[in-house]
């Protein structure tokens, strides 16, 4: 566990819990980061507000990596535009691509996401695309230059947990990049399960923002993610299926 690092495009992280910063007050961010043990925090890009002089950057502790997303983008071109603006804001090359062309379920558009990934990777961004867990898309994202793949567990903000579990497992098994489960994780136990499956990290926002005690829930998530990771690294134990040993009915033909 000590040398176990999450590596994204050559950048090393100890924490495997990525924190969202949406839907809660800026004043809670510092505590959330602290209790979550987070080293990466996401944020969005919006039209600047002239009235409010509070800026999220003033609330994020030093040393935490900022992961701007492209929320609001409805196609690849808009995502690229938002990503470029985010980089101009001067907090590094990380970008989480989020492209929705559906306002009801907010499901990501995989095809446009591949297109945006390709453009931004060529421009030197560290691209972390949020996607619907589809193996062919994941392979396209790898070829397009993605740094990670971020499949959704269930619709964003739903807190419904690992509805796409089997398909995320396929990505974990087949894709050589870190698979970061993003969206829909509503409880620490679900985060833990994703980590036990072999996910490289878990990202959560709404589960914390809507919790009774945000910092306490952030800590619960941190522990769950660590426990799941440790279980994965330890190799889960066997389940006893039956007591009796089988007879050699299948292999009885072997001669030596």
């Amino acid at each position: 566990m000590e040398n176990d690092k999450l590596v994204i495009a050559g950048h090393e992280f100890t924490s495997r819990f990525i924190l969202g910063s949406g839907k809660y007050s800026l004043s809670l961010i510092e505590a959330a980061v602290k209790y979550a043990g987070a080293e990466i925090i996401t944020c969005a890009v919006r039209r600047a507000n002239t009235k409010e002089h509070e800026n999220i950057l003033d609330f994020i502790p030093k040393g935490v990596t900022l992961l701007p997303n492209t929320s609001g983008a409805r196609n690849a071109d808009e995502a690229v535009r938002i990503a470029r603006l985010a980089r101009e804001l001067g907090c590094g090359d990380f970008v989480k691509i989020e492209i929705m062309r559906d306002t009801k379920y907010l499901l990501p558009d995989n095809a446009e996401t591949v297109r945006a990934t390709e453009i931004l990777a060529k421009e030197g961004f560290i691209v972390m695309p949020y996607m619907y867990p589809d193996l062919n898309t994941a392979r396209d994202l790898v070829n397009a230059g993605a740094a990670t793949v971020m499949p959704l567990a269930s619709p964003i903000g739903s807190n419904k947990g690992l509805a796409t579990k089997d398909f995320i497992q396929i990505l974990i098994d087949e894709i050589d990049l870190p698979i970061i489960v993003d969206a829909g994780i509503g409880r620490p136990s679900q985060a833990c399960e994703a980590m036990e499956m072999g996910a490289a990290a878990v990202m959560s926002n709404t589960a914390l923002a809507t919790a009774g005690d945000l910092p306490a829930m952030a800590e619960a998530f941190r522990k769950a993610v660590e426990a799941g990771r440790q279980a994965y690294l330890s190799g889960l134990g066997r389940v006893l299926v039956r007591g009796a040993a089988p007879s050699d009915t299948l292999t009885g033909f072997l001669r030596d």
Binding site: C43, A44, R46, N49, N55, L57, S71, C91
Partner: peptide
């Protein structure tokens, strides 16, 4: 002219 900044987001 568009003037943008970071805000909270997931």
């Amino acid at each position: 002219v568009e003037i943008v900044s970071f805000v909270g987001g997931g």
